[in-house]
Design a protein around this nucleic acid. Structure first.
Lengths: 227, 227
DNA sequence: GATAGATTTAAACGAATGTTTGAATTCTGG
DNA sequence: CCAGAATTCAAACATTCGTTTAAATCTATC
């Protein structure tokens, strides 16, 4: 090439291209030739640097997921330090610690952040066994840490119920990230202008907190007559 | 064959097999040969009866989606009739009308109901264009009807916010349907025994209602100091 | 500046994919 | 019972897939 100092090296160019295409078309619908063509590399380069297409997908996910999870834990650490004891952290802050870093990543439309989050959200529902195992292992530390944090933050709610609501929060988040354009497509309404992404964090956080703190099923909700 | 009266005809056997395999392995990861082998039919039968693999997927979805959406609208009709005027339907009943029929379908583990709902939930995130267009057209009537119902049921909330929360509810529901085993896999905890599916409707409905009725973002939530 | 290792390249590989063909078979109405 | 349509079937179709090969090129070290 003419100028070699400006471009990232081949593995990183491949990761960038794969991230974008996986997010845009889906993993199975993206061929290695499409990836390498976009990256300006040879087809064999993927197998040389990443072993296989599966290895490439794992590398794409790992590149940003590790730091994302580290940010989540750091924020939870800060919240627990600020509250003076892990048992006194408000649920609001636990939700914030887990989802705020992810939402911030998803709002990064120019860098690969948004593409990565869409890919991650869709990968969470992918039935491929190697992906399930990979994500389970990659997220196990964060999940255990936050499961315990949620249980401590809501001592009046049975831990099982807290886990379910954590699960539901993950779902609402993932689906919202997968595509805000889904909303326009489904309802036919142009929901917002360009600042849909700017408003998403507050909107999503309000919904998640409302669901997390909802009256327990089976118990008569106190303010039910007002709904 | 020996007894021809006991088996469903070929198109229906293919639909059943495709529904199960699409839900279990994903659409792209399921070959036509795997489908026809499970259905006890020839490979060419799919193209003969459904035109293509895309046509088969659409037929699988259409088979149950039409009646599901009809049930949703019927339940909303009943709620509006019982409340004496569409403007006086409680949000609780609108949520119930939309999600209860779907949850009931998802709880049907022996028939294809659960497989269908998992496939439908995953298809909602599938980036394939023909699927997006198909689902948008198939659901447009229900979505418009319920968008309006939600807006009327919550007159004090801006319609845009209601749409967003409808979107979030769809996400929490879809993700929960995609796999309850996700929870055990992610948290390492065996969340419940066999009755996880039996308890899911109440748990999910409580969460959805909590999110729908959450304090609006930007406004100081009244009971925030207690969280 | 020679050498050993790392990287890139064009080309080909075998397997699997969705689809089509045309003959055989089954079903149906007169 | 029989023509004619509908369906089933084995076989082959062309294409695309992920992967591999082996030679060519680049890079860094002594």
């Amino acid at each position: 090439m003419s100028d070699s100092a400006s471009l990232p090296d081949t593995p990183e160019r491949i990761l960038d291209a794969a991230e974008a295409l996986f997010a845009e078309r889906g993993v199975e619908a993206t061929s290695m030739r499409a990836i390498t063509q976009r990256a300006g590399a040879n087809v064999a380069a993927v197998n040389y640097h990443f072993g296989s297409k599966e290895g490439l997908l794992q590398a794409v996910l790992r590149r940003r997921l590790d730091s994302l999870n580290a940010r989540r834990i750091a924020q939870l650490d800060a919240a627990e330090a600020g509250a003076g004891g892990a048992a006194r952290v408000k649920p609001h802050l636990v939700v914030q610690a887990f989802f705020a870093p992810a939402i911030a990543l998803a709002a990064d439309r120019t860098g690969g952040g948004q593409a990565f989050m869409r890919l991650l959200a869709r990968s969470s529902g992918n039935p491929a066994q190697f992906l399930r195992e990979f994500l389970a292992a990659e997220n196990s530390a964060v999940m255990e840490r936050f499961s315990a944090a949620f249980a401590r933050a809501m001592p009046d709610v049975p831990p099982q119920e807290v886990l379910w609501r954590f699960h539901f929060m993950l779902g609402a988040f993932s689906y919202a990230i997968m595509g805000v354009d889904n909303l326009r497509l489904l309802t036919g309404v142009d929901v917002d202008g360009e600042d849909a992404w700017a408003r998403l964090p507050d909107r999503l956080m309000a919904f998640l907190l409302g669901g997390l703190r909802a009256p327990l099923p089976g118990l008569a909700p106190p303010g039910d007559s007002a709904s």
